[in-house]
Write a protein that binds this DNA or RNA. Structure first.
Lengths: 206, 206
DNA sequence: CGTGAATTAGAATGCCTGTTCAGTCTAAGG
DNA sequence: CCTTAGACTGAACAGGCATTCTAATTCACG
């Protein structure tokens, strides 16, 4: 049985979602520091005062946004890689899912990268710390896939952590490139095969 | 014949260098926005007013710092890759030079990444634009190496731009990982072989 | 309709920080 | 031992912005 929410509660959730969508648009364009509460309010078509009814600070809006998106992303990746069977297939699922996610969340990518670079929140609040841990756990997942492949003999014997970082870097760079070039929708996921091939067999002529 | 600088001019250059070193320390710790002129002044042991004698704004300090470092880095990479002969050797030279540079410039890496992510200077000044162009030209250099290898048959026929981005991403991620883990000096360049191997032949068991 | 509780709006507040500037110090030249 | 040009200093200034506050508005309910 789903919990029945009061109309009030439902409206509250809608407002929250709308606010976060607006915040994403503004933060991804200007970054955390150059975005003002007035910008967010205008984009969301709320008054400034209303923002403070929904979140208690600018920081909380930002972190809430990042946490929600990152969690959605990680969940998707986790599901897809778990479903795939065998090292190469898991790698492919990982790449495809990541490319697909950011193809549909272009704006968010900038925020994601900023979060990775750790520049926005050097002094991490407890909340920021939680997001950081999630991002790191994602790398463990990748390393786990590589590790398993090494054990089954599908992959070379190599440092799985290093490989995981490298793959993650490759993917990020590719997404970045795609966004910079303002490529058409659909064309990012299409790079899955290229990346998979590169990661599995390198560029050297056999 | 080298130009003879007056004592004044020489002292001026020293002050400038000292200021930039202090700025690097502070900016790399807290990022552009959370760093105040007071922070820089304290670190440099100058009064705030003195900073404005050497540079005309906070932005100019930052950009000057980044431009100097990026230029030094690019010059080094350019020289080393030019000296190496053959695709694989050029790739190795590129990787080794990059790892070596950031091994000796840990602090700067954060600034470099932030600059790449484009988050700090979304609305680019003419000066910021110049740095951005330099970073992009670096990618062309990498792509050029790959391209050449493709032509000589050393490398597979593949999109050289994509490969260049992927390699760059791999390297960045590796450096990032190394810095995060607070690894001992010397151990970053040591990863050259691993990265070269990964990029050339992938992780798949032959 | 009338009432008051909840919600909204955006003006006002106060802090923070980049930049300036008026005074102080230093030292080279006479 | 002056003089004075230039370097240095940090307190004061001004603008910007997160947050708060209260008057105006809406809305549920009788």
């Amino acid at each position: 049985m789903t919990v029945k929410l009061s109309r009030k509660a439902r409206e509250g959730l809608v407002r929250r979602r709308e606010l976060l969508a607006a915040a994403e648009a503004v933060f991804s364009k200007n970054g955390f520091f150059k975005t003002t509460m007035a910008d967010i309010a205008e984009e969301a078509e709320f008054a400034i005062g209303t923002l403070y009814q929904i979140f208690k600070s600018k920081e909380e809006i930002y972190l809430s946004l990042v946490d929600g998106k990152v969690t959605a992303y990680l969940t998707e990746v986790e599901e897809q890689t778990r479903a795939a069977v065998g090292g190469p297939a898991k790698i492919e699922a990982l790449i495809r899912t990541k490319l697909n996610f950011f193809e549909h969340n272009r704006n968010f990518f900038r925020i994601y990268v900023a979060e990775w670079s750790g520049f926005e929140w050097t002094a991490k609040s407890a909340f920021g710390e939680r997001i950081w841990k999630k991002l790191l756990s994602h790398l463990d997942l990748i390393a786990g896939i590589v590790d398993e492949g090494v054990k089954t003999g599908e992959f070379k014997r190599l440092a799985s952590q290093e490989a995981a970082f490298a793959l993650n870097g490759m993917m990020n760079a590719t997404i970045f490139h795609w966004i910079l070039g303002n490529q058409p929708p659909g064309s990012l996921v299409a790079k899955t095969a290229l990346l998979k091939d590169l990661f599995l067999t390198g560029i050297h002529q056999a």
